Amino acid sequence: SARDTKWVQPACLLHHNEERFDAGYVCATTGWGRTNPDVDGIEDSLRQAEVPIIDHSTCQSNYWSDYNIHASMVCAGAAGSNSCKGDSGGPLVCLKNNSYYLVGITSWGDVKCKRDIPGVYTRLQSYSRWLGNIMNQDQC
């Protein structure tokens, strides 16, 4: 079983009415995804990238109009590092008051994983009521 260590710690969830992590916060994403989008396979070791939260309009300007950035999404990156293929489902965590908060789940981004284009994450705060209901069912 997993234990809390220097490297492994639980992350908090934000309630739907708490202050959001908006543009300017520098957060971290982790995963075993590719470091080169043109090379198949995943990495042998877990990688971490520091990625700043990007406002929606700036994020939207990086993608075709077919890909709408919704309020239930949060964008991060475009500052020299990014998530890539194989990182999907991984965490986007932000530090506040000495606690890490699970702000997003790696979802999608630029097909070539360009480091100057933000990645798009599911904004967990948009689903906090649903998550609370599921956890309170205690069916596990």
Rank of each mutant, 00 (worst) to 15 (best):
C27R: 06
T29W: 09
G90P: 10
W7G: 00
N36G: 02
Q139D: 08
C113V: 06
K114C: 00
D66Y: 11
S81D: 13
R129G: 03
N136E: 15
S61W: 01
C113P: 09
I53C: 07
G109C: 10
P52C: 06
Q125N: 03
R115L: 14
R115F: 10
N133T: 09
I53K: 06
W108D: 00
T58E: 12
S83V: 14
D55C: 03
W64C: 00
G77W: 05
N98V: 01
G41W: 08
S45C: 03
T35Q: 04
I42W: 03
V26N: 02
R3N: 11
E43M: 12
C84S: 10
R34S: 13
L102C: 05
I134H: 01
G77I: 05
S107H: 13
S126E: 07
L102W: 13
H70P: 00
P10G: 03
W130G: 04
G90M: 07
Q137P: 00
S126G: 03
M135V: 12
L95Y: 10
D87R: 01
P91F: 05
R123Q: 11
D38Q: 14
V103A: 04
R115M: 10
L13M: 11
N97R: 14
N36L: 06
C75M: 06
W108K: 02
D110E: 12
M135F: 14
C94E: 03
P10H: 07
E50Y: 13
S72I: 00
R20Y: 05
S83N: 04
T122W: 04
T5G: 10
A76R: 02
V93E: 10
L95E: 14
G24I: 07
D66R: 15
G41I: 09
G77P: 13
D4V: 15
H70L: 12
D138A: 12
L131H: 07
G86K: 02
G80H: 03
S65F: 09
W7M: 09
K85A: 13
D38C: 08
Y100P: 02
I105D: 14
Y63Q: 04
G41N: 06
I54Q: 08
L102R: 10
D87L: 09
L13I: 11
L102M: 11
L124V: 15
N62P: 00
V111D: 11
S1L: 11
N62G: 11
Q9D: 06
Y100E: 05
C12L: 09
C27Q: 06
C59S: 05
N17E: 11
N17S: 14
N62R: 15
Y25T: 08
I134E: 13
P118W: 02
D87W: 04
C94H: 07
D66C: 02
K6R: 14
T35C: 02
A71R: 05
Y127I: 05
K96G: 01
V93D: 09
H15G: 07
K6P: 00
H16M: 00
A11E: 05
I117P: 02
V74T: 03
